[in-house]
Design a protein around this nucleic acid. Structure first.
Length: 838
RNA sequence: GGGCGUUUAGCUCAGUUGGUUAGAGCAUCUGCCUUACAAGCAGAGGGUCUGCGGUUCGAGUCCGUAAACGCCCACCA
């Protein structure tokens, strides 16, 4: 028997441990077709937030559903080493302990990092357990483990040999905080306050000068030219002449280049090839000298003369002062402009010329674009519009900078000896080779996740069985970083898309629509929500409130209402269990019309739920299921069953319907459904491994469904009228026909109210379909004429509308016949009713 | 500059091939302690579906257009 109150803490306690112990989440439990999802590996840097809870809840629902349907399901857990993020956190921890991380030996530092990983992995495991995720832990992976490292090296070596990975000096984004290169995706542009500094560049052998506007005066030490537009009439006469770089007093050429935009600034641009991507291109075109002036840590180097060693922002301030004092500063215009920041450290990103490793993207991206044209083999996005995001990225893609100047990650499998480079799976045998110190971008290994986790490059049984995976679930913000890269690596290395469907969800926001973030302090810890409302309520809330691709505003009220729904299910189950305690025969024989009615509703619900589950439209699953459970089952069937409990068919029906409800709910709320299912008589094993309900035509009884629908409708109209007419307890009922009113009498508690003959009190006619009663009010002395008038008015309006519709030939000819019939029926009904009222 | 999304009840949101009187939760109002559930039951009120124009017998849904809010990409000396 169930406890009197639903207690999520009690219900969710210990269950996960048992599930894990009995290995019910292990792949191979069912012998149907394979169905596989790889978890987006969370970073080992911290706690899971609500967004994670949302993401994994969606996946667990998909997996549990397919498992119950007989698929051989595999959900692979794992975590990401998260290069920059983890290294930053480990460094911070060391610094707090008074240790300067970069003075440590690399091996010693890595030991600290692995301890960190261990600790955080455990946190994440605990949180997954609390959420009830049906992950197959026997296949858990970590991006830095041996197998995945082998996959990473294999990919690197192969791409290198194919000419798709190269090493070269290029303009990259430099994070001076983490002291590493970044890819373009890792740069976030933010609007900040800055200024246009107008600087005077004197012309050699002349009294004239050029007014050059720059937002970054401190880079002027690296200026190796000024550029003007070749068509800019203002500056024609300066082309080919030389200007003097203030303070430095170096002569630099004035060149004509299309990069200079006459509309922007003064039309004259200073060219700093080492610290600006566009200037770098200009430098190449005009064969300009390259002078680096900023150190990797963001301080100025020896080329900045007396500013050497100063932070670049301090240097800017002082330099502007010096320029002003010496008369070189023409004016300062305050502006708001957008400046790149490091996604992880938030440091202002420096465009920086440096030697890095790159993936040549064009050929790889073209493969994706080609594949997306094929309906059979493309990655199908849900919702479909996100495919455009991927395709656009593939169209405009640029080479991917993959080397990172970090310690935490896959060390690049390249070795140097003098000018020689060796790239291979293992270090060369001969003496004298040293390995590249850099590691690879974290996303380089995550890009292989769908196949590396299945054993690739070894062609394992798992790989053959479960690849390509079926669905990938992630937020739209991760498409450029991860989805796109998995797609091109998957296509290139396995010849197949890594997943058939890509289900995209939105971002979690706070109640007023702001992103949840640490700085705003508006984050919500899913573990706190679970403590208060239970994982089932949280999961149900997260997965049923939005359609795919849209953001979700976190609203605790709604979690509470999910809890209420579970409580309702709990109590309904309690009622059922109280009444079927000793049930032996659960077969559905000698059914009453009411039984047939609920069974029909159930089967239709199963049909719809299955349809929506297959399309991953969980919000639609919810509306169908919620409605069926709360209204049809609880409010109607259970209430009516109270009058028929002595009938064996009633108990069997209660049992049957409840069992099916639990199964349909199970993917959403695994804990409470397991609890109730296990307490039901004649059930065995885990509900997670039971069979998902299948739509059965044999339980569709259209006649009976309609009959009881009408009855319920009449009851509703009666109650409504009674309340509307404010009729109190003293009334009598006259039945106007021979329809069967037995059930209605019980539902409306008519008992002694029924009279045989009409009496002389004010009276009201209440009718619906086959039901017609007259209600006598003993207290009132007059009829409520106003109400009757209102009803007549409403009917007349409605009749007119329908008559017009039916008079329209276009409607009769073009609308489906059933709709026309329906309209005719309704018209007839309304006319009949009107006649009686008059 | 290019692209995308959102706009539906007081609030948060569903509404996926165009078809009864547009739904839910929460909030509001009325009446109920009816032994599964007062975290509940029985009812009620509340919407020119952002504006304008079009297609259609019929539009929240399709097309065009405008606005507000938001997001992504590119650029930003």
């Amino acid at each position: 028997m169930l406890e009197k109150k639903y207690n999520h803490l009690e219900v969710e306690k210990d269950k996960y441990e048992i599930w894990k112990e009995k290995e019910i989440f292990k792949a191979g439990k069912k012998d149907g077709k394979p169905f596989c999802i790889v978890i987006p590996p969370p970073n080992v840097t911290g706690k899971l937030h609500l967004g994670h809870a949302w993401d994994v809840s969606l996946q667990d629902i998909m997996i549990r559903y397919k498992r119950m349907q007989g698929y051989d399901t595999l959900w692979i857990p794992g975590m990401d080493h998260a290069g920059i993020a983890t290294q930053a956190k480990v460094d911070k921890k060391l610094k707090e302990m008074g240790i300067e991380p970069r003075t440590m030996k690399r091996e010693d530092w890595l030991k600290v990092a692995w301890d960190w990983k261990k600790e955080y992995a455990e946190n994440i495991h605990n949180q997954w357990a609390k959420l009830g995720l049906s992950l197959d832990y026997s296949r858990e992976r970590f991006t830095l483990d041996e197998g995945l490292s082998k996959a990473v090296r294999t990919v690197f070596v192969k791409l290198y040999n194919e000419g798709l990975i190269y090493r070269g000096e290029r303009m990259i984004n430099w994070d001076s905080e983490a002291k590493t290169a970044l890819s373009n995706e890792e740069v976030i542009y933010k609007d900040v306050e800055g200024a246009f500094y107008h600087i005077k560049y004197p012309i050699v052998d002349s009294d004239e000068f050029l007014d050059v506007a720059t937002t970054r005066p401190e880079t002027m030490f690296g200026d190796t030219a000024l550029a003007v537009n070749p068509d800019d009439e203002r500056y024609q006469k300066f082309i080919g002449k030389k200007a003097i770089l203030p303070i430095v007093n170096r002569e630099i050429p004035i060149v004509a280049d299309m990069h200079a935009d006459p509309e922007k600034g003064t039309g004259v641009v200073k060219i700093t090839p080492c610290h600006d991507p566009n200037d770098y291109e200009v430098g190449l075109r005009h064969n300009l000298e390259k002078i680096v002036v900023i150190n990797p840590d963001g301080t100025m180097n020896e080329n900045a003369l007396h500013y050497q060693g100063m932070d670049r922002f301090v240097a800017r301030e002082k330099l502007v002062k010096e320029l002003e004092e010496k008369g070189y500063l023409l004016k300062v215009e305050k502006i708001i402009h957008s400046v790149g920041h490091s996604e992880r450290t938030d440091a202002m990103v420096e465009p920086y010329l440096s030697k890095q490793w790159f993936v040549k993207m064009r050929p790889l991206a073209d493969k994706v674009l080609e594949n997306q044209k094929n309906k059979e083999t493309k990655v199908k996005f849900l919702p479909a519009r996100y495919e455009k995001i991927m395709n656009h990225w593939m169209e405009i893609t640029y080479d991917w900078c993959i080397s990172r100047q970090l310690w935490w990650g896959h060390q690049i499998p390249a070795w140097y000896k003098g000018d020689e480079i060796y790239v291979g799976m293992e270090a060369p045998k001969e003496e004298g080779w040293t390995q590249d110190k850099d590691v690879l971008d974290t996303w380089f290994s995550s890009a292989l996740w769908p196949f590396s986790t299945l054993g690739w490059p070894n062609i394992t049984e798992d790989y053959q069985k479960y690849y390509p995976t079926n669905v990938l679930v992630t937020g739209y913000d991760i498409i450029p970083f991860w989805v796109n890269r998995m797609t091109f690596q998957g296509l290139h290395f396995t010849g197949k898309r890594p997943f058939e469907y890509c289900y995209i969800h939105g971002l979690i926001r706070d109640k007023i629509g702001r992103k949840m973030s640490k700085s705003l302090g508006n984050g919500v810890d899913p573990m706190d929500v679970i403590k208060e409302y239970g994982a089932d309520a949280l999961r149900y809330y997260l997965t049923t409130q939005t359609s795919s691709g849209t953001d979700l505003r976190y609203d605790e009220e709604k979690v509470r209402s999910s809890w209420n729904f579970i409580n309702k299910i709990w109590n309904a189950s309690r009622f059922v269990l109280m009444n079927i305690e000793n049930i032996e025969d659960t077969s559905l024989n000698n059914l009453t019309n009411i039984d047939k009615w609920i069974l029909t509703k159930l089967e239709k619900t199963i049909k719809d739920v299955t349809k929506y589950m297959d399309k991953y439209e969980f919000q639609n699953v919810n509306s169908v299921l919620y409605n069926f459970i709360w209204e049809d089952f609880c409010d109607s069937y259970i209430e009516m069953s109270k009058f028929n409990m002595e009938q064996p068919s009633t108990k069997a029906t209660l049992y049957y319907v409840l069992k099916n409800i639990l199964k349909m709910l199970h993917p959403f709320m695994p804990f409470v459904t397991e609890e109730i299912y296990s307490k039901m008589p004649l059930t065995e094993g885990f509900i997670a491994l039971s069979d998902y309900p299948k739509y059965q035509k044999e339980y569709i009884y259209n006649e009976e469904e309609k009959e009881i629908d009408d009855l319920i409708e009449f009851v509703k109209i009666f109650r409504n009228k009674k309340a509307e007419l404010k009729i109190g307890k003293d009334y009598k009922i006259l039945l106007n026909n021979n329809t069967d009113y037995e059930l209605i009498k019980k539902m409306l508690k008519w008992n002694d109210l029924i009279i045989e003959k009409e009496i002389n009190y004010p009276k009201f006619l209440i009718e619906y379909k086959n039901y017609s009663v007259t209600l006598f009010n003993e207290q009132e002395t007059t009829l409520d004429i106003e109400n009757i008038k209102k009803e007549i008015e409403f009917l007349e309006k409605s009749i007119l509308k329908r008559e017009n519709l039916l008079a329209n030939e276009n409607f009769i000819n073009k609308a489906p016949a059933s709709l026309v019939e329906q309209e005719k029926e309704k018209l007839a009904l309304e006319k009949e009713k009107l006649a009686k009222l008059k």
